[in-house]
Amino acid sequence: MTVDSILESIPPLAVYLVIGLIIGLESLGIPLPGEIALVSAAVLASRHSLDISPVWVGAAATIGAIVGDSIGYSIGRRYGMGLFERLGKRFPKHFGPGHVALAKKLFARWGAWAVFFGRFIALLRILAGPLAGALRMRYSHFLAANASGAICWAGGTTAVVYYLGLAAEKWLARFSWVALVVAIIGGIGLTLLLKERTRNLIAQLEDEHDWETLRRHDGI
């Protein structure tokens, strides 16, 4: 059995449901690879041998993002900031003091725009819904930013990946392998640089949080 035959045996409805579920759970606050799942589905949609619609991929991702963020908002509004303290103890790599402090800093500066642009940033994509609820952001403002961000992120990502998939063979035929390797290395390098800067900022905020906790404990 070939890879193509395996892919052709997957019902399109199953793809839409899985995409919506993964992105919904990620938006709710569970650290799942929503972006990877969306890109993979968009790539599958670009193959004419498969009956997967890019429109439905984008729609499923958008619905999952909006619903997941809204549920996360409700949970954050009910349990408040104490929720992040408990999650930070169990999942320090995703909900540590530095992660929450950085997200709060962005929310304080940008307000509802942090929800919109947070859809494009892995850290905020997980924290945006629960944190907006915990910080008592007005739901109407949250919903507007959440829905518009989800549409732009899901629809834009699907469209870009889909059309890149269609043009991939022609693109590779026009450019040398050297140019392709350079482009890949450059993209990986930029991604690693952004991750390192985010990691350093989180570590700095975690140190500030530890110092503040020590100062309150010692009565300084």
Rank of each mutant, 00 (worst) to 15 (best):
E85L: 04
R90Q: 09
P92E: 02
R125A: 04
K89N: 07
W113T: 10
P97I: 10
G129V: 05
R119Q: 12
G118L: 06
A103K: 10
V100E: 11
A101W: 08
V100D: 12
G88D: 09
P92L: 02
V100M: 09
R125G: 07
K89T: 06
G80S: 14
L106Y: 10
W110V: 03
A112I: 11
F91H: 06
A114I: 07
H99F: 13
G111H: 00
A134V: 10
G82W: 00
P92M: 04
G129R: 08
M81F: 11
E85W: 00
K104S: 12
L102N: 05
G111W: 01
G98W: 09
R86S: 15
A128T: 05
I126P: 11
W110R: 06
R119C: 04
A108E: 15
F117K: 10
G98R: 12
G88I: 11
G88E: 10
A122C: 01
P92R: 02
I121V: 15
G88C: 13
V115R: 04
I121C: 03
G80L: 12
G98M: 12
R109K: 14
F117R: 07
P97R: 04
G111T: 00
G118F: 00
I121W: 00
L124T: 09
P97N: 08
M81I: 13
F116V: 07
R119S: 05
L123Q: 01
W113S: 10
K104N: 07
K93E: 10
K105G: 08
V100R: 06
F95V: 09
F84H: 11
L124F: 03
R90L: 13
V115N: 09
A101C: 09
R86A: 14
H99R: 15
F120V: 05
G98Q: 12
R109P: 08
G82T: 01
M81C: 04
L102W: 00
K104I: 07
H99G: 15
L83R: 02
R125K: 04
W110F: 15
I126M: 14
L124Y: 00
A128V: 03
A112D: 15
F120T: 06
L124W: 02
G129K: 11
G98P: 15
R90V: 13
P97F: 04
F120M: 11
L127D: 04
L131R: 02
I126Y: 13
R90C: 03
L106E: 05
L127N: 06
L123F: 01
V115G: 09
H94D: 05
I126Q: 12
P92N: 03
H99Y: 12
A114L: 07
A101K: 13
A108T: 08
W113P: 00
F95G: 10
F116A: 13
A103W: 03
G129I: 04
P92S: 03
A132N: 10
P130H: 13
K93G: 13
A122H: 00
L106P: 00
G80N: 14
L83N: 02
L106M: 15
P130A: 07
R125Q: 05
P130Q: 06
G111R: 00
V100I: 15
H94I: 02
W113Q: 12
F117V: 15
A108L: 13
F107S: 03
L83H: 02
A112W: 15
L124G: 08
G133T: 09
K93I: 01
A122M: 04
A101H: 06
W113H: 06
I126S: 05
L87M: 14
A122Q: 03
W110Q: 03
R119G: 11
